[in-house]
Amino acid sequence: MKNFLIAFGIFLAWAFFGLWLYFMLEPKENTMIAQESAQQNTATSAVEKQSTSGAESNESIRDTLTDSDSKIEETNANFGLTAVDSDGATLFQYKDGVAIQKNSSSISIPQTSLDIKYKLQTYLQEHPDKELHIISRYSPEENIENPNYGVQRGEEMEQILLGAGVPREQIVIKPVIKDIRFDAEERYDRGISFAFRPLDEGRLELMRNRIPETMTVYPRFSDRGILINQELRDLLELVMKMMKENPDATVDVVGHTDNVGNAIDNYHTGLTYARQARWFLVTKGPIERTKIRALSKGETEPIDDNTSERGRIANRRLEIILYPNGAN
């Protein structure tokens, strides 16, 4: 019995010693693990931050809303459609705004506000050192799209402005997410506003290197086809200059029509116009036929209202897309 008690006492001593040793060592191991985990998280955060920074630096055409733009957003919240200058002063203001539809890229400009596109174009002509920001709104409640609906709606507005003669290089799309109260028909009538800013030369340089140049041409149209005018002659000089500077450059000529008649006939009419313009460039250039494509969008991409004669004239056009690096 005595030997048993001695052995049991030794066992308890070793057990307590083992537990003491375990608890002495265990916090140090946990501390090391915690430190390693913190180091890994720091490294991961650094990589994520670097990746995010790179993505932001690449987004040169479409920016997020600046603090100045946010103030404008708040100031003009109660107006239908506005255009402001760099100081936030209102240049143009309309009671009826540009309507957007929930979960749709489409926009609708009321007839009472339609002439703003010509006022914007005139202002930029008088102020060549300015660029026009399209502040395009979308809601966090809308479906997730890539690009988001703010960008898509901004692009729709951009096409309308291009048709009015606003230079592409002076247009910047700025999507802004905000809480939008859509009405019973899921419409919101203040989806777009405009702001003028000093022309960003750095953005222009990046833009020239990243996207093709697009221009709209209005030749004289007749029942027999297009007639040569100064716009086509200017286009020929531009294309020849680009081809000389960039031997790999290519061109798309896209025909557009109004909606008079049926869609199939209008598609073929647009294609006929595009082919005739291509023939003019090829024969008068001379430019290689393989460098120029003739395409048609028919009546599918109007830039104005087809219910008026002025709108139909604006929709009958040629869109010229220049690819300096032959990337079409």
Score class of each variant (00 low, 15 high):
L91I: 15
F92Y: 15
F92R: 02
F92L: 13
Y94K: 07
K95I: 08
K95D: 14
K95R: 12
D96V: 01
D96M: 05
G97N: 12
I100L: 02
I100N: 00
Q101N: 06
N103C: 07
N103A: 10
S104Q: 14
S104C: 06
S106F: 03
S106C: 00
S108V: 03
S108R: 13
S108C: 02
I109C: 04
I109D: 06
I109L: 15
P110V: 08
P110G: 04
L114A: 15
L114G: 01
D115N: 11
D115M: 04
D115P: 00
I116F: 13
K117Q: 14
Y118T: 06
Y118P: 00
K119G: 01
Q121S: 12
Q121R: 15
T122Q: 15
E126F: 00
H127F: 03
D129A: 09
K130R: 14
K130A: 08
E131K: 05
I134P: 00
I135F: 07
I135K: 05
I135V: 15
R137M: 08
R137I: 00
R137Q: 10
S139F: 10
S139L: 08
S139R: 06
E141T: 10
E142C: 06
I144E: 12
I144T: 12
I144N: 06
N146Q: 12
P147C: 12
P147K: 14
P147S: 12
Y149F: 15
G150K: 01
V151S: 08
Q152K: 15
R153Y: 02
G154A: 11
E155R: 09
E155Q: 13
E156L: 03
E156D: 09
M157G: 01
E158D: 04
E158W: 04
Q159H: 09
I160D: 05
I160N: 03
L161S: 04
L161M: 11
L162Y: 07
L162H: 05
G163V: 08
A164P: 04
A164G: 05
